[in-house]
Amino acid sequence: MQRGINKLGLTEIRIAGFGGQGVILAAVVIGKAAAIFEGGYATMTQSFGPEARGGSSAAQVILSGEPILYPYVTQPDILVVMSQEAYSVFSPQLKPGGILIVEQELVRIEHPPQGVRFYGVPATRLAEELGKKVVLNIVMVGFFAAVTHMLDPDSLRQAVADSVPPAMQKLNLQAFDKGFEYGAELVHRMSEGGDAEQVLTLESEA
C-alpha cells in the first residue's frame, strides 16, 4: 500500500466534537505529520464564530503535495466526528465518496449517509482501557491512520510525540497504536469479508 503526502491530491479533513476532546490537537498532529515529517503541505484552521459555541469544537486540515492556496475546507474528503452534534452539523457536507470516521459510542447513526465510506471506533473506551480518557483524540488519529492510509504511521507517531509534553508521550503513543491496531484489524476484517473496495484509499486521486 502506497502512503505519503507527495502522492496526495488536495485532501480536506474536518475533525469535530466537544470542547475538551482534543479536537484541535488531533488536527495539529495530522497537519504536522504531513507538513513537517513528510515534507508536504498542511494548512490547519479552527472554527471560530457561531459554530464553535456551545461547547462544540471543530478543526480543519487541508493536506497536499503542493502548496495550499485556499485555506478553508469547502467540502471535506474526510470527516472525523466525536459528538452527535458534530455529526448532525457536518455530515451533510461530506464529499460523495468521502470517508466518515465516528466515535461509535458517542455518535448514533440511524440513517448512515449514502455513498460514503464509514468507519466506527469506540475511541473513548479504548482510551479508558489505557487509563486516560483524555487520549481519545489520539486513538482517533491512530484509527484515522489505519483506515485512510494517507500518511505514514511513523510520521504520525513522530507528530504525536512532538505535540505532547514529554511526560505524556508514552501514553499518547500507546493511544495512537491502540487506535491504529483497531483500525487495521477492522480494515482486514472488511477485506476478508470480500468488501475490499471499502478500503480504497485516497491515493488514487494523486
Binding site: 507538513a35 513537517i36 479552527q46 495550499i68 485555506p71
Partner: peptide, 10 residues
C-alpha cells in the same frame, strides 16, 4: 488578517 493570524502551517 484573522485568517492568516489563525491558520496553522509549517
Amino acid at each position: 488578517d484573522e485568517c492568516v493570524g489563525h491558520m496553522t502551517e509549517k
